[in-house]
Simulated assay, not measured.
Amino acid sequence: MAILNVSSVLVALFLTCGAVMASKENDQVIKENNCESKMDFLCVLEAFTSILNTGSISNKCCSELVVLGKVYRSALVKRTLENPLFKDLNPATVIAKSIQKWNNCLALIDSPSLST
Results as ranks from 00 to 15, higher is better:
I109W: 01
A2P: 09
C105M: 01
S111F: 02
D88I: 15
N5R: 08
V66L: 02
A19M: 11
S7G: 09
K97S: 04
D40N: 06
A12H: 10
K31P: 06
I95Y: 01
L108C: 10
I51Y: 02
F48Y: 12
R73M: 12
I30H: 01
K24W: 04
L45V: 03
C61F: 00
F14P: 05
P91Y: 02
E64R: 02
A75G: 07
T16S: 11
V77R: 12
L68V: 09
P84E: 06
Q28W: 13
L108F: 10
E32Q: 12
F41E: 11
P112G: 04
L68A: 10
L13C: 09
L76V: 12
K87R: 14
V67P: 08
D27N: 14
A96Y: 08
M1G: 07
E46G: 00
N103T: 05
F14A: 04
N104E: 15
K38S: 10
C61E: 00
D40V: 02
V9F: 10
I95S: 04
N33R: 11
C61A: 03
E64H: 01
C17F: 13
P91G: 09
C105N: 00
V11C: 10
F48D: 09
V11W: 04
A75W: 03
C62F: 00
K101M: 11
K78Q: 15
M39G: 01
L45F: 02
E32V: 07
Q28D: 09
N59G: 08
G69V: 04
F41G: 05
V44Q: 15
A75D: 04
S7D: 12
A47T: 13
N103I: 03
K70H: 14
E25M: 08
V77M: 09
V11R: 14
Y72P: 08
I99Q: 13
T54Q: 14
T93W: 12
F14N: 08
K87W: 10
F86C: 09
I99D: 06
I95H: 00
C43P: 07
E46C: 00
L15Y: 05
A12K: 09
V94Q: 08
R79F: 05
V66Q: 03
I95C: 05
K97Q: 05
A47E: 07
L65W: 04
L10S: 02
L85W: 13
S115R: 15
E64Y: 02
L4R: 03
M21W: 13
Q28M: 10
V67Y: 05
S56H: 13
A19H: 07
T80M: 15
S23A: 03
